[in-house]
Design a protein around this nucleic acid. Structure first.
Lengths: 143, 143
DNA sequence: TATTGTTATACTCTATAACTATA
DNA sequence: TATAGTTATAGAGTATAACAATA
């Protein structure tokens, strides 16, 4: 009945995605809480790299927030013993973030839970799951 | 090379979805800011229904946060003139939330922007967009 | 007694502006 | 001068606990 915009497939797909992701809100908060962390601290942990120490400014960009916030977020992760700040020799203004042993373990635990597909995706058949994966690979670029 | 869990299709799809949704973080904050609102206030607006006034407790459930937060969030929406609280005659403990005219307009503007698919989805062909929509309809239930 | 919503409290996230120390 | 990170500040989101009004 002339609700053409509403039934555009990309719009409907996106609206369903928003709904799906929002429905996961509570899970992350709960998992973070079990580790004594806030959701934002978990996201910070998620964007740190055990292989390649990340600078404060890089983390600010990953978290899409002002650099001044990152100071506090990293302060709290550091006080939990999960992260260490170290100045770089090349440019002593820059501080890189190293995961401690505990930090790597916590990060691994959280990532394992976060990356586990929710019931909605597990409800799809294996063929559908592959189809979804392929579509998202396509959408998110060749990388 | 034996990274079997990582290559499970559902897990990869979900990981890509997390990445996609996170990449949209800045857009919502920007749109909210243009309306003088916070992201959370926008989500609250999103969960209000122009057709069916929602109770405070219902909104708390939709937002997946404690009822005590909703008091403050609705206070701010009300002070912006977007929402009105009204006690119900049947049970005078519950307060239902009515959108004002301005509230409906603001909500409509924001929803229009939020539901517009991001570049990643527009990059898919129409056939792929329909495929994605159908998969998500399946995943999110028969409704 | 139980439930709806509010208040009080303490902590976290948030951006802006001013600052320090490097470069 | 410019940049990386911090501090100060004020406002918003967060849960917990205690409370008022109503059922």
């Amino acid at each position: 009945m002339a609700t053409r915009a509403r039934t555009d497939p990309a719009t409907e797909a996106w609206t369903l995605l928003i709904k799906l992701m929002w429905s996961q809100r509570g899970r992350l908060a709960a998992w973070a809480g079990e580790e004594g962390l806030s959701p934002m601290q978990v996201h910070a942990l998620r964007h740190l790299d055990p292989e390649r120490p990340v600078a404060m400014s890089e983390l600010a960009e990953s978290l899409v927030c002002d650099a001044s916030n990152v100071t506090g977020i990293v302060d709290r992760l550091e006080s939990h013993g999960l992260v260490e700040r170290r100045s770089t020799p090349e440019d002593r203004r820059v501080k890189r973030l190293f995961l401690t042993e505990a930090g790597e373990l916590t990060r691994g635990r959280l990532l394992g839970r976060m990356h586990a597909p929710p019931p909605e995706l597990r409800a799809l058949t294996p063929a559908e799951q592959r189809q979804l994966r392929d579509l998202l690979r396509r959408a998110l670029g060749p990388a």
